[in-house]
Design a protein around this nucleic acid. Structure first.
Length: 879
RNA sequence: GGGAGCAUAGCUCAGCCGGUUCAGAGCAUCUGCCUUACAAGCAGAGGGUCACAGGUUCGAAUCCUGUUGCUCCCA
């Protein structure tokens, strides 16, 4: 059979993915095995796969496939998130393209469009994950707004409301004037912007020319001022007690209040107070019972209450009011100023603090136990440094604003009554019954049609936080077989930026509803950046298209590339060269298979000693590596694990082992060695399978025509006996071989040309042992002999403390050799000096552990003997 | 303003509790090879005052303090 010299992923990947799906290898149902479960961080239905998903899902797939091959019942639950703001924005944009205005549609009509959009685009990202090789149990695919999840969310809302954890109230919230909705604190991104600090003077009541100057970055909110605040200890303003101040342009008289909140050093030390438009001012307003004048409309234009500039955009008004203030003689000066301004994560609009009636969830009580389980490592973070961040946040949580003024989402199950009160219930009917029961006078005339359901929907994270429970329907059916078996899940793989949005809240939900954490480990991936360290973004155009990348290099190569350079929690600077490295590795493995597959065996051939020892050696190397790699996994150092695999396969297996046992051209190999090699190869591809599922499945089948079996069904190789003596014996051989090669390279001796090597030995006893023939083969030697003397006209080198020679007829320049030797002597002498310095130091000898002192003594002896040998060489050359 | 983390080769990083010929790996670079598995390859080579300054110690990349620079989170 002809096998191509290059591995072609495109010809095998779809084939094997179909094979896995058709055989249901990803399917998991509860049984007697130990469960291993991961729930996917559900990507947005609006999303298409980006590099962050690639990294994240590669890691999950590696963990799941590994668990499966450890004999666990592995279950990876996929799904998508309805992403209310993002999806609604997309649907609105699409409708606009069709000339349809959102406001012209009823709620039901809009939702019909949204669902249509979801059905059409919602599955794309999951199909893309399949290209990556994701081994999700697709039969379990969930959507945060499918029937079970929807009902779950509503049930939870009602439950928490009844428990008093959810309340409705007027609070200052972050308002997105573009999306026309409240957003949570976590959805506000603070950016540093260059702006101006305006010094504006306000006239003091009862005088014609007494003024107080305040500094503000937001002059357009002046119309909403209801107080001036100064520090109680500020002598400059002590005379203002009991006086009133006139707000410019509208001449509203407002009080002066004295509060330590004011920073005397900032600006003029006097602060204008606008309770409707600043969170700190709002708090001052509460404290001093100030009037609240809301001068903005929801869309960020000025309202009637502003009296001036009504209907105009807030930033246009800023320019205008500054001009008008100046004209009226109120502007004292304007300074450049840099401050931080909050932007909406979704729309990039500047957030407007706004007082509005919203739904909130109390967080303090929930935060405490959720912090506790991370502190005591019931939930472990990888890397652990995120514990600090988590602790800090959990100690300072505010109540969670869970209502959004959107249509796409879980509509809040609250029903408003004509008298302004409301009831919370699942259906209109239940709400009606509840409302009736609450009204003391049964004769009061409300009808079921008087109930009006709350217009708001819930924050998207209000469904996500239930995800590890809701995917198993554990809220509606708390005792079902799935939830009992799979919950708590084992690992969660996610980005550190959603540690509070999502991770913390899932932990709270888990403890609240199941009295058990949702997962044992959280693996935080880094952010995928470009080579210059910039975030990947559409606007920069610096993100490769993942599907194209897979098409070009193969899924296995991309997976490897993603992982190779991304230790947990570190950002990954993406570069195509990483994926190329992955592809090259695939090809290397492919060609190793071609080599082994091409060998003929001869049953009559006895196994040479050198092959036997090579097999024993690699067996020990492999067993050592298996332990190391397993250790890397238990520490969640996946990137390191992959590097170890890479070295084991490329260096130890291909570069050394295969070269050691490789038969001469068109010669057969003995069957013992051949069989051992096949066993090694199979162990290696099993070990590699979680990282590179497609290539390993292909090789698995090429190696033994496996038919309907899959490598997925096999177990990871287990470590066996390790002969450390043999390993260190080979370390000497490796150095010897490398030294001979170095001489060849230096002296321009072609690899084809056979050369002799002599090893100095007084008693003709060899140091190469069973590897004798291996050395001859790897170095292409005509002979390898032991001799007490140095042959005529030869170059020498030292391996450890052993002197070796290669006789050369030409190419020897004594001067050059002497120079090199003397450089080496100098280096060794320097080394010896540092060792001597330690050994001459009495406190070192007395205080250091014996083992360390002995090591130094050995260093000394070795260095001395090497120097002696080198000096000897120089003398020989001189004569 | 509050908190956290990082600084080691051109790049990305490893180096856990101080001691292995400790200054490492991969990539990149340079040199020589199309050697019958693989040029997506093979062999070899060069490259770092471990940010800076102190301290602890027989001994510091590793522990402590300070300085500088960068990054992230929170307000």
């Amino acid at each position: 059979m002809e096998i191509a010299t290059k591995y072609d992923p495109s010809s095998v990947e779809d084939k094997w993915y179909r094979f896995w799906m058709e055989n249901g290898f990803f399917r998991s149902v509860p049984d007697e095995r130990e469960p291993y479960c991961i729930v996917i961080p559900p990507p947005n239905v609006t999303g298409v796969l980006h590099m962050g998903h690639m990294l994240n899902n590669t890691i999950q797939d590696i963990l799941v496939r590994r668990a499966r091959m450890l004999g666990k019942n592995a279950c990876w639950v996929p799904g998508t998130d309805h992403a209310s703001i993002a999806t609604e924005a997309k649907v609105v944009a699409k409708l606009r393209e069709q000339g349809i205005d959102k406001s012209s549609l009823s709620r039901e009509e809009f939702l019909a469009h949204a669902w249509e959009w979801k059905e059409k685009h919602g599955g794309i990202i999951l199909e893309q994950l399949k290209k990556l090789g994701a081994s999700c149990d697709w039969d379990r695919t969930c959507f945060t707004m499918d029937e079970a999840r929807f009902e779950t969310v509503i049930d939870v809302f009602i439950d928490l409301y009844n428990k008093g954890l959810i309340y409705r109230g007027a609070r200052m919230i972050n308002w997105d004037p573009k999306a026309l909705t409240a957003v949570s604190d976590e959805e506000v991104i603070y950016k540093e912007v260059k702006s101006k600090l305006y010094y504006v003077r306000y006239r003091i009541e009862g005088s014609s020319d007494e003024w107080i100057t305040i500094a503000t970055t937001r002059p357009e909110t002046i119309l909403g001022d209801t107080a001036i605040c100064v520090h109680p200890d500020d002598e400059r303003y002590a005379n203002l007690k009991g006086r009133k101040i006139h707000v410019p342009l509208i001449n509203r008289a407002v009080p002066v209040i004295f509060d330590e909140y004011v920073d005397k050093e900032f600006g003029t030390g006097a602060l204008k107070v606008t309770p409707a438009h600043d969170i700190n001012d709002y708090n001052l307003g509460l404290k001093y019972n100030l009037e609240v004048v809301d001068t903005f409309n929801p869309d960020g234009t000025l309202s009637e209450a502003a009296q001036l500039y009504i209907g105009e955009n807030r930033f246009k008004v800023r320019t205008k009011i500054v001009r008008d203030l100046d004209t009226a003689g109120h502007i004292v000066k304007i300074e450049d100023y840099t401050n931080k301004v909050g932007y909406s994560e979704r729309t990039d609009e500047i957030i407007e603090p706004r007082i509005s009636v919203q739904w909130f969830m109390k967080m303090k009580e929930l935060a405490k136990p959720a912090l506790e389980v991370v502190e005591n490592e019931t939930v472990r973070f990888h890397p652990a440094k995120y514990k600090n961040m988590y602790r800090h946040w959990m100690g300072n949580v505010n109540d969670w604003c869970i209502s959004r003024q959107l249509l796409w989402g879980h509509r809040i199950p609250a029903w408003h009554l004509p008298d302004g009160s409301f009831v919370v219930a699942k259906t209109r009917h239940e709400a009606f019954e509840l409302a009736k029961s609450r009204i003391p006078d049964p004769g009061s005339r409300i009808t079921i049609d008087d109930l009006k359901q709350d217009e708001d929907v819930l924050d998207t994270w209000f469904s996500s936080w239930l995800w590890p429970i809701s995917v198993f329907d554990g809220i509606r059916h708390p005792d079902n077989a799935d939830i009992n078996y799979y919950y708590p899940t084992v690992d969660l793989v996610t980005a550190p930026e959603i540690i509070f949005f999502w991770v913390a809240r899932m932990i709270m939900a888990g403890l609240l509803f199941r009295n058990e954490v949702p997962f044992r480990n959280v693996y935080f991936t880094g952010i995928v950046r470009d080579k210059q360290g910039r975030k990947m973004s559409k606007s920069l155009g610096n993100s490769p298209e993942p599907i194209e990348l897979i098409g070009k290099y193969g899924a296995d190569a991309v997976r490897m590339g993603m992982l190779l350079c991304s230790p947990a929690g570190n950002d990954l600077l993406y570069d195509d060269s990483l994926v190329e490295q992955g592809r090259n590795f695939c090809n290397k493995v492919w060609n190793a298979m071609r080599l082994v597959k091409g060998w003929e065996t001869d049953p009559g051939l006895e196994q040479p000693k050198s092959n036997q020892v090579s097999v024993e050696w690699f067996d020990s190397v492999l067993n050592t590596a298996l332990i190391d790699i397993n250790e890397q996994f238990t520490r969640y150092r996946l990137s390191e694990a992959l590097k170890d695999v890479y070295k084991l396969v490329w260096d130890d297996f291909c570069s050394w082992y295969l070269e050691m046992i490789k038969p001469a051209f068109q010669m057969p190999v003995d069957s013992k060695t051949y069989d051992a090699t096949l066993v090694f190869f199979e162990k290696l591809i099993r070990l590699m399978h979680p990282f590179m599922p497609f290539l390993t499945e292909e090789i698995f089948h090429v190696l033994h025509n496996s038919g309907e079996a899959s490598i997925m069904q096999t177990r990871l190789p287990l470590s066996g006996v390790i002969d450390n003596g043999l390993i260190s014996e080979f370390d000497f051989i490796r150095q010897l071989v490398m030294s001979v090669r170095a001489v060849r390279s230096e002296k321009n001796i072609p690899q084809k040309e056979q050369i002799p090597v002599f090893i100095r030995s007084e008693n003709n006893k060899g140091k190469t042992g069973h590897f004798h023939d291996v050395v001859i083969k790897l170095c292409n030697l005509s002979e390898l002999q032991y001799s007490p003397d140095q042959p005529e006209s030869s170059v020498s080198f030292i391996v450890g403390t052993t002197e070796c020679f290669i006789p050369l007829l030409q190419n020897i320049n004594p001067e050059e050799e002497i120079k090199k030797l003397e450089e080496e002597i100098q280096y060794q002498q320097g080394f010896l000096n540092t060792v001597m310095k330690k050994l001459d130091n009495e406190s070192f000898v007395n205080n250091a552990p014996a083992r360390v002192v002995d090591a130094e003594k050995k260093k000394k002896a070795d260095a001395e003997s090497r120097i002696a040998v080198l000096k000897d060489q120089v003398n020989t050359l001189r004569n």
